[in-house]
Amino acid sequence: QNEKLANELKSLLDELNVNELATGSLNTYYKRTIKISGQKAMYALKSKDFKKMSEAKYQLQKIYNEIDEA
């Protein structure tokens, strides 16, 4: 289960640069939040902690959705 979550989180991290570029014309909230979420996700992957990875995955998905809707 950890392996599956780690792969999903890696996949979301692969999209980080594209989504970060998409924040160029948006409010600074999005820029700041996506950077923080990305850092948390990288830390969670290194720690291999299921709870941290779950939270990081949720945060990344949430900010990606917010950027898409903005």
Rank of each mutant, 00 (worst) to 15 (best):
Y64K: 11
E3F: 07
V18T: 11
S11C: 12
M53V: 01
L26N: 04
T28E: 15
K51W: 10
E66P: 02
M53L: 03
E69L: 12
Y43V: 14
K35P: 01
Q61T: 08
Y30C: 08
K46M: 13
Y29W: 09
E15V: 12
L5C: 15
Q59L: 14
K10M: 09
K40G: 03
N65D: 09
Q59W: 15
Y58L: 12
N19W: 15
K46V: 10
I34E: 01
L16D: 00
N19I: 15
L16M: 07
Y58Q: 11
L13P: 00
A44E: 02
N2E: 10
A22T: 05
G24F: 07
K40L: 13
G24H: 15
Y64M: 12
L60W: 00
N2C: 14
K31L: 08
L12R: 00
L26F: 04
A44W: 02
F50E: 06
Y29R: 05
M42W: 11
E66L: 10
S25A: 11
S37H: 11
L13S: 01
L60R: 00
G38S: 12
E66D: 05
N7V: 08
T33C: 15
A70M: 10
D68M: 15
S25M: 12
E3W: 08
N17P: 13
M42E: 07
N7Q: 13
K51R: 09
N65R: 15
D68Q: 15
E66Q: 09
L9G: 00
D14W: 09
A22D: 04
R32S: 07
Y64V: 06
E66M: 12
A22M: 14
G24C: 14
Q59E: 13
K52P: 01
L12Q: 01
L26D: 04
A56K: 01
N19Y: 15
S47E: 07
D14P: 00
V18R: 14
E55N: 05
E55W: 11
Q61W: 06
D68F: 15
N7P: 02
Q39C: 13
S54T: 13
N19L: 15
E20D: 07
I63V: 05
Q1M: 12
S47K: 05
D14G: 08
Y29F: 05
E69G: 07
I34R: 02
K51E: 11
G38N: 05
R32V: 13
N65F: 08
A22W: 09
L21M: 09
L9K: 00
E8D: 08
R32Y: 13
E69T: 09
K57S: 04
Q59N: 08
A6D: 02
A22Y: 07
K51M: 10
L60M: 03
K52I: 08
K62V: 05
E15A: 12
L26T: 03
E3D: 09
L45M: 04
Q61F: 04
L21G: 05
N2Y: 14
K62N: 04
Y64S: 03
S54V: 13
V18G: 08
M53E: 00
L5F: 02
Q1I: 12
E69V: 12
E15G: 07
L13R: 00
N17Q: 13
D14V: 06
E8V: 04
V18Q: 12
D68Y: 15
K48N: 12
A70G: 04
A41V: 03
K10W: 06
A41H: 01
K4T: 09
K51Q: 12
L45T: 01
L21F: 08
A6Q: 09
A56L: 04
T23M: 06
L16F: 10
L26I: 04
Q61N: 04
L9T: 00
K57R: 07
M53Y: 04
A70T: 04
K62Q: 07
A70Y: 07
G24N: 13
L9N: 00
K62A: 08
N65Y: 11
Q1C: 12
K52D: 04
L9Y: 01
A56N: 00
S54A: 12
N27C: 15
N17W: 15
N17L: 14
K57L: 15
N27F: 04
T23G: 06
Q39P: 02
D68G: 12
L13H: 01
G38C: 14
K10F: 04
I63E: 00
N27E: 08
I34G: 01
L45E: 02
T23D: 05
S37Y: 14
A56M: 04
A44Q: 01
S25T: 11
I67T: 02
K4F: 08
K35T: 07
S37D: 03
N65I: 08
Y58E: 14
Y58C: 10
K51F: 10
K48C: 09
D14I: 07
K52N: 05
E69W: 12
Y43P: 02
S25L: 11
E8M: 05
Y64D: 00
L12N: 00
S11P: 00
N7S: 11
E15Y: 14
Y43L: 14
S47C: 06
Y58H: 11
K40V: 07
N2Q: 13
L13A: 00
K40P: 00
E69R: 14
D68W: 15
G38R: 13
A56H: 01
I63L: 07
A70N: 05
K48H: 06
L21W: 09
A41D: 01
G24P: 04
N27R: 08
K4A: 09
K62H: 07
N2R: 13
E66G: 03
K35L: 11
I34W: 03
E8W: 04
A56I: 03
A44G: 01
E20L: 15
A41L: 02
Q39M: 13
K57M: 12
I63W: 02
K10V: 04
V18M: 12
D68A: 15
Q61M: 11
S37W: 15
V18K: 15
N7A: 13
A6E: 10
L60V: 02
K35Y: 12
A70F: 06
N19K: 15
L45H: 03
K10T: 05
S11I: 11
V18L: 13
G24E: 14
L21Y: 08
E20F: 15
D68N: 14
K40Y: 14
L12I: 03
A41C: 02
Y43F: 11
T33E: 13
A41W: 03
L12W: 02
I34Q: 01
A6N: 02
Y29C: 12
A41S: 02
T28R: 12
Q61A: 06
T23F: 08
Y43A: 15
L60S: 00
K10E: 06
A41K: 00
A44V: 02
S11K: 14
N19H: 15
Q1N: 10
N65E: 10
I34T: 01
E8T: 04
N7D: 10
A70I: 08
K10C: 05
Y30P: 02
A56Q: 02
K57A: 08
L5H: 01
K62E: 05
S11W: 11
Y58M: 11
A70C: 10
S54C: 12
Y29N: 04
Q61C: 08
K46Y: 08
N65H: 13
Y64L: 14
S54E: 13
K40F: 14
L45Y: 07
L12D: 00
M53Q: 00
K35W: 12
G38H: 10
Y30F: 11
N19Q: 13
Q59K: 05
F50V: 07
E20A: 13
S37I: 15
S54N: 10
A70Q: 07
K31Q: 12
F50P: 11
G38T: 12
E55V: 10
K4V: 09
L60P: 00
A6W: 15
Q1W: 10
K52Y: 05
E69Y: 11
